[in-house]
C-alpha cells in the first residue's frame, strides 16, 4: 500500500514536470490548425485535399526524428547499458511507428484524392511502409519476455541494425522501382513553389508536431523508467521476476566491469 502511494506520488511529480511543454505543444497545435485550415488558401490545383500536407509532412518529419533518436539511444544502450537510453528509445520508437502510420494513412487519403488510388507502388511509399515494419519489429523485440537488461540490449541490436537498414531499404526500393519502370508519380506539393501563408502554416505545424513528440517521449520514457525502476508496479514485478537482483545491481550506476 505504502509502495503504491509512493508510486503515484512519483508519477504525479513526473506529470507536473511535463505540463508546461504539453501546454506549449497544444497551443502551437491550435495555432497550426487555425493557420492550416483557415488562413492558408486551398491549393489551386488540388483544392482542399492539399491541406492534408500540414499533417503529412510534419508527421513524416517527426517519425524520422524519432527513428534518429532510436538509433542514437540504441548505440548508447550497447555502449553504456543505460536504462534511460533504452526507455527513451522505446518511447521514440512508439512515437515513430505511430507517426509513420499516420503519414501512410494520411498519404493514402491524399493519394485517393489526387491519384484516384489508395495505394501506389511508388518507391517512397514502399520504403515508408518497410520502415514502419522495421520499427514494429524493434518494438516486438523490446516486448520479448526475459531479464530486462538482456531484452534492452537485444532490442538495441535490432535498433542499430534498423538504422543501418534505413538507407539500404530506401535505395533498394528506389532501384527496384526505377529499373522496373520510371516513376510516374510525383509529389507536386513538395516541388512546386509554395505561398507564404502555406509555408508559415507548414512551419508552425512542424513545430507543433516536434513539441508534441518531445512531450510524448519525455512523458512516456519517464513512465517506463518509473515502472521499471525500484518502485515496481505488480505487473512489471511479475515480468521481471527472473533476475531482479541483476536489475537492481546495474540500475543506478554501472559497477566496474
Amino acid at each position: 500500500m505504502r509502495d503504491s502511494a509512493h508510486l503515484s506520488a512519483h508519477l504525479t511529480h513526473r506529470d507536473r514536470r511535463g505540463v508546461p511543454l504539453g501546454l506549449l505543444a497544444s497551443a502551437t497545435a491550435l495555432v497550426a490548425a487555425l493557420l492550416a485550415l483557415v488562413v492558408a488558401p486551398p491549393d489551386a490545383l488540388q483544392g482542399q485535399a492539399q491541406r492534408l500536407m500540414y499533417v503529412h509532412v510534419p508527421s513524416a518529419w517527426t517519425a524520422f526524428l524519432a527513428f534518429g533518436v532510436v538509433s542514437v539511444t540504441s548505440l548508447a544502450t550497447l555502449v553504456t547499458d543505460g536504462r534511460r537510453a533504452a526507455a527513451v528509445g522505446q518511447a521514440a520508437a512508439e512515437l515513430g511507428v505511430a507517426m509513420t502510420g499516420l503519414t501512410l494513412a494520411e498519404g493514402s487519403m491524399w493519394g485517393h484524392s489526387a491519384w484516384g488510388a489508395w495505394w501506389a507502388w511508388d518507391p517512397r511509399l514502399v520504403s515508408t511502409a518497410l520502415l514502419f515494419l522495421l520499427y514494429v519489429g524493434y518494438l516486438a523485440a523490446r516486448a520479448l519476455p526475459g531479464d530486462p537488461r538482456r531484452v534492452r540490449r537485444r532490442a538495441a541490436v535490432v535498433g542499430a541494425c534498423a538504422f543501418v537498414q534505413v538507407p539500404v531499404v530506401h535505395f533498394s526500393v528506389l532501384w527496384w522501382r526505377s529499373l522496373h519502370q520510371p516513376p510516374t508519380l510525383l509529389r507536386p506539393e513538395l516541388s512546386a513553389p509554395i505561398a507564404a501563408s502555406m509555408l508559415v502554416a507548414l512551419l508552425v505545424s512542424l513545430l507543433a508536431f516536434s513539441l508534441g513528440g518531445l512531450w510524448y517521449v519525455r512523458r512516456r520514457s519517464a513512465a517506463l523508467l518509473g515502472s521499471a525502476a525500484g518502485h515496481r508496479s505488480p505487473a512489471a514485478e511479475g515480468a521481471a521476476v527472473e533476475a531482479p537482483a541483476r536489475e537492481l545491481a546495474t540500475s543506478p550506476v554501472r559497477g566496474p566491469a
Binding site: L133, L134, G137, A140, A141, Q165, S172, V173
Partner: peptide, 13 residues
Amino acid sequence: AALPVLVLPLVSP
C-alpha cells in the same frame, strides 16, 4: 513470433 516480423522487413533489400 518475433522472428518473421523482424526478419522479413530486414531481408527485403
